[in-house]
């Protein structure tokens, strides 16, 4: 391809956009990145549908009867298919923490209290938030009950726990 010096200049259109510069030696710039995913809850979908009906669905193994407090369509113990069962809406705090800092997404919600809930007759635990107790004042063994958002967001935070 031939290029002729002095030939017509080709200009790109100019924009108002610039670069955020933090430093020049070395050069440090702001680089933006974000994305929306098309996300399927797949086989766990009934759990989220359950939340819209104010139900907590766990998974019970059809072979060994192990009861998981979380969605798990195959048993972690024996590998067999599980079926959905309704968890009790009341349980006890197995452990807890109050977060005063957090991931950027949740910083504005601090302080918030996380709990693992144990349910009578269920083999595993359930992670949720505890509401209605002062930060740092939860107790292991405290009785708690589930409450549900009126308008579902199809997130595990559609359910939260309060003192029973």
């Amino acid at each position: 391809m031939s290029y002729e010096p002095g030939a017509q200049k080709i200009k790109l259109p100019e924009t108002e956009e610039g670069t955020v510069l933090f430093n020049v030696d070395p050069i440090i710039i702001k680089h933006h990145y974000e994305i929306d995913y098309i996300h399927s809850y797949a086989q766990d979908s009934p759990f989220f549908a359950g939340l819209t009906k104010k139900k907590l669905l766990g998974s019970q193994c059809t072979q060994c009867n192990y009861k998981f407090a979380t969605p798990r369509s195959h048993c972690m113990e024996c590998g067999a298919k599980t079926e959905w069962f309704e968890l009790p809406l009341e349980g006890k705090i197995h452990t807890w923490t109050t977060c005063y800092f957090g991931s950027e997404e949740f910083l504005k919600e601090t302080p918030f209290t996380l709990i693992l809930v144990e349910f009578e007759g269920v083999n595993t635990l359930f992670l949720s938030r505890l509401v209605g107790v002062e930060p740092g004042k939860a107790k292991i063994g405290m009785r708690v009950k589930a409450q549900f958002l009126r308008n579902c967001k199809f997130k595990p935070t559609d359910v939260y726990f309060v003192p029973a």
């Binding site: 197995h94 452990t95 807890w96 977060c99 957090g102 949740f106 996380l114 949720s128 292991i140 595990p156």
Partner: peptide
């Protein structure tokens, strides 16, 4: 990211719950 992260995903929070139970 379906069940743990959205509740308040924060590793220090997870380990805090673990050691709280260790203390208990």
């Amino acid at each position: 990211t379906n069940f743990d992260y959205p509740v308040g995903g924060f590793y220090t929070g997870y380990y805090a719950m673990m050691v709280r139970r260790h203390m208990h």
